[in-house]
Amino acid sequence: MGSQAGSERRSFRNSEDCPIRDVVAQIGDKWSILILFALVDGPDRFNSLKSRIEGISQRMLTQTLRDLQRDGFVLRTVYPQVPVKVEYELTELGKGLSASVWKLVSWAGDHHSDIRNARQQYDEETGE
């Protein structure tokens, strides 16, 4: 993120140096926050996560867990037993992110009906 010379308005570079594009956009997808908050309850297995996050496909859960693991938010542990047991849990970085995002999630819960009403009013006014 940067600012334009002589201007107080923010500008956003299309670069990995921009934390909004590099970090926030990554976790702001459809599933990442839901997975993070499912893991706030403690370590969990893949199928348990899938059953707790309604609507997520196996492929999307796999990919999103890999992305969260790559970014250092989730730890994947494989236990050498038969059958193999795999658990996912938040790292310290993931716990910090979850705590930071909690205010937004809480705000969304508090204002969900206001937002739904605003959408309905907009749709009625615009004929959408």
Rank of each mutant, 00 (worst) to 15 (best):
V24H: 09
E92L: 11
W31L: 08
E87V: 15
R13Y: 06
L61S: 05
F46I: 00
E89A: 12
L36N: 00
R45C: 08
I27S: 04
D41Q: 10
R116K: 14
E92M: 09
R70H: 15
G2M: 07
Q63P: 00
I35V: 15
S51C: 02
I115C: 09
S57W: 02
S113E: 14
P43R: 15
E125I: 08
H111D: 03
N14F: 06
R21M: 10
Q81L: 11
I27R: 08
R70I: 06
I115K: 09
V78S: 12
K30T: 15
D22T: 08
S7H: 14
I53D: 02
W107P: 01
N47A: 08
N117R: 15
G55M: 08
L93H: 08
R52G: 01
R9W: 04
D17H: 10
A38S: 14
G72Q: 10
L93T: 07
V82H: 08
W107N: 05
G109V: 00
D110C: 02
P83Q: 06
R76G: 01
K103F: 06
H112P: 00
R76I: 06
R52K: 14
E8G: 11
I27A: 02
I35A: 03
G96H: 12
R76M: 12
E87C: 03
K30R: 15
T126N: 13
F12S: 13
I20G: 03
S7R: 11
S98C: 06
V23G: 04
G109Y: 11
I20Q: 04
M60K: 08
P19C: 07
L49N: 02
V24T: 10
R116S: 11
L61Y: 08
V24P: 01
N14Q: 10
L61H: 07
L104Q: 11
V24Y: 05
R52C: 03
L34I: 03
I33T: 13
K95R: 15
A99E: 09
T126L: 10
W31S: 00
Q63N: 14
Q4W: 03
L97M: 14
Q120W: 08
R52L: 07
G28A: 14
L68S: 03
E8I: 13
K30Y: 14
R70L: 10
G109E: 09
R70T: 12
R45T: 10
E89C: 04
M1K: 04
F12A: 05
R52N: 12
S3H: 10
Q69D: 07
L49P: 00
S3P: 00
S15I: 05
Y79N: 07
R119L: 15
G94V: 03
L90A: 02
Q63E: 13
I27T: 09
I56H: 04
V23T: 13
L49T: 03
S11V: 12
S113K: 14
S3W: 05
E124N: 13
G96I: 05
L68D: 02
R66F: 13
A5S: 10
I27G: 00
P80L: 13
E125P: 02
R119F: 12
Q81R: 15
I56Q: 02
S11R: 13
L104R: 02
K30A: 10
G127K: 09
P19I: 13
R52Q: 14
G55T: 09
K85T: 10
S113W: 06
P43C: 11
R76N: 07
